[in-house]
């Protein structure tokens, strides 16, 4: 059994007799939805080797994204037809493409392009989505109904189809790609933020503010926004992963980032015709996508485990109840 953080006491609550356990531990440990910024959060994150590994990988990817353009050994458009389709070698680590351009240099530069598209589009989705979701969730009533029906409609479209429609209207290009992905991911943030805002709205401390005549703006800023931050942070990390994939997909269809600018998806698009001839043209950009998406996903999971006490509790409860029989015994007192 791993050593257990004492703050994780509530884990037992769900496993022991429902009434006694959870109430008891919640009371002694004070782990509720209204959780304070826990000092142990960072330690919990640090103790998870998967999260740490993902964070390190991400750091490398980010550094590459920042400095790649300057450390790339060749220009991204340094055409050298004489050396086209060369396999990986000392001079060209990832080989060369059909125009003799250095794949390694292009992957480095594409990192920046792909990450920029992903980050900016998710930032757009975050700001708009959280704004819509928080207002809808907190205000409720007809405004909530109207905003959420719009969100439902957006959800009903397949992601790529919606992005394609937006690009069809605005024409392809990096800015359009950012906007398209941003709009596509806005409803997810709106849903996540609304769900949290709904639960924060009925918290007694929000009611206290209402009885004191605190204006809605203050309540939203001070109480609701911090309350939704946890799930939104997790969603951000996961969305960046999906945004990278979406950008790759759009560029792969030739609708995203336009040449001569390289992006991971664009490079895969260019490699299509050479799959049998030059595996390196598709494998390296593909690997870059795979590694960064995986890293963002894992780090998102890691953050959720730390920030969302209920999820974490379930995990640990599962880990601690080795024998399901005990649960059954407790069910004499009914299973909740």
């Amino acid at each position: 059994m791993t050593q257990v953080d004492p703050t994780a006491g509530s884990a037992a609550g769900s496993a022991v007799g429902p009434g006694a356990g959870s109430a008891l531990f919640a009371a002694t440990v004070g782990l509720a939805g209204n959780a304070p910024p826990r000092a142990g959060a960072w330690r919990l994150f640090r103790d998870n080797p998967v999260s740490v590994a993902a964070a390190l990988v991400l750091l490398v990817v980010l550094v590459v994204g920042l400095v790649g353009r300057w450390v790339a050994p060749y220009g991204i458009n340094a055409v050298d037809v004489a050396n086209a389709l060369q396999p990986p070698s000392g001079a060209h680590w990832f080989g060369t493409d059909d125009l003799g351009r250095d794949v390694f240099s292009r992957v480095l530069v594409a990192t920046q392009v792909s990450l920029r598209v992903a980050f900016v589009s998710v930032a757009f989705a975050l700001v708009v989505g959280v704004g819509v979701g928080v207002v809808a969730g907190y205000r409720g009533g007809w405004l909530d109904t109207v905003l959420m029906r719009v969100v439902d409609v957006m959800f009903a479209f397949p992601v790529l189809l919606l992005a394609l429609a937006i690009i069809a209207v605005l024409g392809p290009g990096t800015t359009t790609t950012i906007l398209a992905i941003g709009i596509v991911y806005t409803p997810i943030f709106a849903r996540v933020a609304r769900a949290s805002a709904l639960s924060v709205r009925v918290e007694p401390f929000v009611q206290v503010s209402q009885t004191m005549g605190t204006p809605s703006g203050y309540i939203l800023r001070r109480h609701v926004l911090p309350g939704v931050s946890g799930p939104v942070i997790v969603q951000t990390s996961l969305s960046v992963a999906f945004a990278i994939l979406s950008e790759a997909a759009l560029s792969f269809l030739g609708l995203g980032v336009q040449p001569p600018e390289p992006s991971w998806g664009r490079m895969l698009f260019d490699a299509q015709g050479f799959l049998g001839l030059a595996w390196w043209m598709s494998v390296f950009p593909g690997l870059a996508i795979f590694v960064s998406v995986l890293a963002f996903n894992l780090i998102g999971d890691g953050i959720r485990d730390v920030l969302d006490p209920r999820q974490r509790t379930l995990l640990q409860a599962r880990r601690s109840t080795r024998v399901p029989g005990r649960r059954r015994a407790a069910r004499t007192g009914g299973a909740a």
Partner: peptide
């Protein structure tokens, strides 16, 4: 002043 001393204060403030 509400009943529950745990939830009537914002845990993040």
């Amino acid at each position: 002043v509400f009943q529950d001393p745990f939830s009537s204060l914002n845990g993040r403030s």
